[in-house]
């Protein structure tokens, strides 16, 4: 480790002070410090190894995340699990209702019933009219007459 590069280096030169004085070790150690240093260091190394290998069960590190996870799963179960009690199929319920019940109790607008295809347009038209069956047939016959008139007019 001796330095062979010194001839190229700027040397520390203080007038009147020999290099040996400058290089002298300024520090001291307590007496006998190095005598028992190796066993002391080895003791520290062994102690560190022991504390590393002795796995301490840290219940907080395990319990807190587990509790959090369980709570989240419970919440998810409440929100997303389908309720089996009174499990009537939605379509079955709708089919059992009349249009009046649907509009009155299910709070559907009549247009929405058609849009959601809960009833077809003809059903809706029939339901909305207050005419009797005879009146309807008569109305349709009149329609036919009017239609014939229109056709005749076109042909003219």
């Amino acid at each position: 480790m001796k330095n062979a590069e010194n001839h190229n280096e700027p040397n520390l030169e203080i007038e009147g002070l020999p290099e040996s004085d400058l290089k002298r070790n300024a520090f001291k150690t307590p007496e006998g410090y190095f005598d028992n240093l190796t066993p002391r260091i080895m003791e520290s190394v062994r102690y560190t190894e022991k504390t590393k290998t002795a796995v301490v069960f840290d219940w907080k590190r395990i319990l807190i995340p587990t509790l959090g996870m369980a709570t989240a799963m419970l919440a998810a179960w409440f929100f997303f699990y389908p309720t089996n009690s009174n499990s009537l199929d939605f379509d079955t319920v709708l089919a059992s209702l009349t249009i009046e019940e649907l509009t009155e109790f299910a709070d559907f607008e009549t247009d929405e019933l058609v849009i959601y295809e809960l009833v077809d347009y003809n059903q809706m038209a029939l339901a909305q009219t207050e005419l009797s069956e005879e009146e309807i047939i008569e109305y349709l016959s009149e329609d036919d007459i009017e239609l014939n008139i229109i056709i005749d007019e076109i042909e003219i």
Partner: peptide
């Protein structure tokens, strides 16, 4: 450095 009992009483070294 000045108060260190383990430092030699060498004035040159202390200054350095």
């Amino acid at each position: 450095l000045e108060a260190d009992p383990e430092l030699s009483g060498d004035a040159i070294q202390l200054k350095l």
